[in-house]
């Protein structure tokens, strides 16, 4: 039974109010995650089935988005060659916060089948923070969707905070990126 006795309303300080609002925000955020369609590698071939009628991603409130500014999730679908990594980092930095990274396949985890190949990087989390990994080569649509559910859990439990890590360890990430990509000196017919 609810007590009818008058109790003085508890005063929240600013931090607590902020936290409450974040929780409210997270609730909405995790139920309307928008993906950025950047098909970086071969795992991307399982995305159309999981997006269209067969597995229907939209029932989780997810949908593909065309521009990085509107998207919440950067989906890294598969291996990354150096050339892609550069563009991926540009894209990641354009996205508005909070932003999450989901990595599909075994290639971003440890190199996968291309662990000893010269243009493919081995470990994605050296360059940008990753929130959820989906293992498998290639992960089928069920596990892709499962990965997104994991991410939603992560947002709920506040464990998916890669974007905060990126701010905190910005120098470390930048150094790694710089080590592998080198300076941008682009001089070819495509960039006249």
């Amino acid at each position: 039974m609810i007590s009818t006795k008058y109790t003085e309303k508890k005063k929240f300080n600013k931090q607590e109010i902020d936290r409450k609002w974040w929780e409210v925000g997270d609730y909405f955020r995790r139920n309307s995650l928008w993906l950025l369609m950047y098909c970086t590698g071969c795992c991307a071939i399982e995305l159309p089935p999981s997006m269209t009628s067969a597995y229907d991603m939209e029932r989780l409130g997810m949908g593909p988005m065309a521009t990085p500014r509107q998207a919440d999730i950067l989906l890294v679908s598969g291996y990354l060659s150096l050339k892609t990594l550069r563009r991926l980092i540009y894209t990641y930095e354009q996205m508005s916060e909070p932003r999450y990274v989901v990595a599909l396949g075994s290639c971003p985890i440890n190199g996968g089948i291309y662990h000893d190949s010269h243009p493919v990087i081995n470990q994605l989390d050296q360059y940008i923070p990753v929130d959820t990994y989906v293992a498998g080569c290639m992960p089928n649509p069920e596990s892709v969707l499962n990965g997104f559910v994991d991410l939603m859990e992560g947002i709920k439990n506040k464990t998916a905070n890669g974007w905060k890590k990126y701010h905190k360890n910005y120098d470390w990430y930048k150094k790694n990126q710089f080590d592998v990509l080198g300076e941008v000196v682009i001089d070819d017919e495509f960039h006249q």
Binding site: C39, A44, S81, K83, T84, S117, H118, E189, F190
Partner: peptide
């Protein structure tokens, strides 16, 4: 994962190039 670079005038393409190589993984060497 490929890119077409277009040089346009109005909406007519004047020059265009495909920029390949973003999916390169050294297959033939592997």
């Amino acid at each position: 994962n490929a890119s077409v670079h277009l040089f346009v005038d109005g909406d007519i393409i004047k020059r265009s190039y495909l920029l390949p190589g973003m999916l390169h993984r050294g297959f033939e060497k592997q």
